[in-house]
Computed example of a mutant assay.
Amino acid sequence: MIVLPDEREPVAQLLGFLEYGERLAQDCAAAQAALVADPGHRRFLLGQARQESMHATVFRGVIAWLAPRRLSATPLLPPLERYRALVEDAITRRDLHETLMAEQLILEGLGEAILNRIEAGLVKRGAPFGRLRRILLHQEEAHHGFGRRLLDRARAEGALQPDRLRGRAEEYLGLTQDMVLTLASLFSTIDEDASAWASDVRLYVPEWCVG
């Protein structure tokens, strides 16, 4: 893979934020497994937690290759910290529907959007490990689809309050936009448009949740 010398630090820094996001997703999926009654759903969520851990490990390995000194750097991104606090509050309240919206729909949607854009750039650069990258993207799609199915089913059964979730969704979506725009300078370093990445995530949220 061709990574120019002046791109190593910003790319490693971006991957550091992605690794942090994967750790958040891992913790959330593990907690969700204790909130569901269906054994199949529990198995899926525990499997998701393991996959998110693997994703984080992959990102960490790439960081070690690009910029080893970044391994000890803790990402400081207030919107992401606020996002984690909101998710943890929903878990404490045992609000499964809100956690599904925040993690599987919005956070996984952001991850999927980012990975799709990264993939396009990596293909142009002739990057290796194409099969591994496709596996990661497929897993993100599966996590997102799982959450969407559970929420759509709960909505059809009248088990959730769309108006309440809609208000919460706007807060979470606002934070994802803040996250990406905060990193705008890093995106510009690698010739990417941060505003496009920020808007992509809305494509992964159903209309009833944001309309």
Rank of each mutant, 00 (worst) to 15 (best):
A184S: 12
D178A: 15
F129R: 12
P162D: 05
S53K: 04
L150F: 02
L132V: 15
G211C: 00
R43N: 07
V180F: 08
Q161R: 11
E171M: 09
S53F: 01
T57L: 05
E88R: 15
H143T: 04
G158S: 06
A85T: 11
L46F: 01
L160E: 03
G174L: 05
L136Y: 00
V3L: 01
A73Q: 10
L150P: 00
G126I: 09
G111M: 08
R148H: 07
Q13W: 12
V123S: 12
R60V: 05
E170W: 14
L186V: 05
Q51C: 01
P10T: 02
P206L: 05
P39W: 06
R134H: 12
S72I: 09
G16V: 05
Q104D: 04
E7C: 05
G40D: 14
E98Q: 13
V210D: 02
M179G: 00
V11Q: 03
T176L: 15
E119A: 06
L18I: 13
L203Q: 02
V123T: 13
L80I: 15
P75S: 11
S199I: 02
C209V: 14
Q51N: 04
L122N: 03
Y83T: 11
P75W: 15
L71K: 05
F129E: 14
H138I: 03
Y83C: 11
L136E: 00
D27M: 10
T176F: 14
V62D: 00
E141S: 11
L137P: 03
W197G: 01
A31H: 03
R149F: 08
D193V: 13
E141W: 05
G61I: 15
I190G: 04
R149S: 11
I118Y: 15
Y20H: 13
D89G: 07
H41G: 09
A56F: 15
G130H: 14
M54C: 05
G174E: 08
L203N: 00
L80T: 13
T99Q: 06
A31E: 01
A85P: 03
A85K: 06
R43K: 10
F17C: 04
H55F: 12
L80F: 15
P162L: 08
L115V: 07
H55C: 10
E192I: 11
L181V: 09
L115Q: 08
R164H: 06
I135Y: 09
Q139S: 01
A90W: 06
I91N: 09
I114Y: 01
Q139N: 01
L100W: 13
Q48G: 02
E207T: 06
A169C: 05
F44S: 01
L137M: 13
R8F: 00
R168H: 06
P39Y: 10
L173C: 04
V3C: 00
V62Y: 11
G130D: 08
E157I: 11
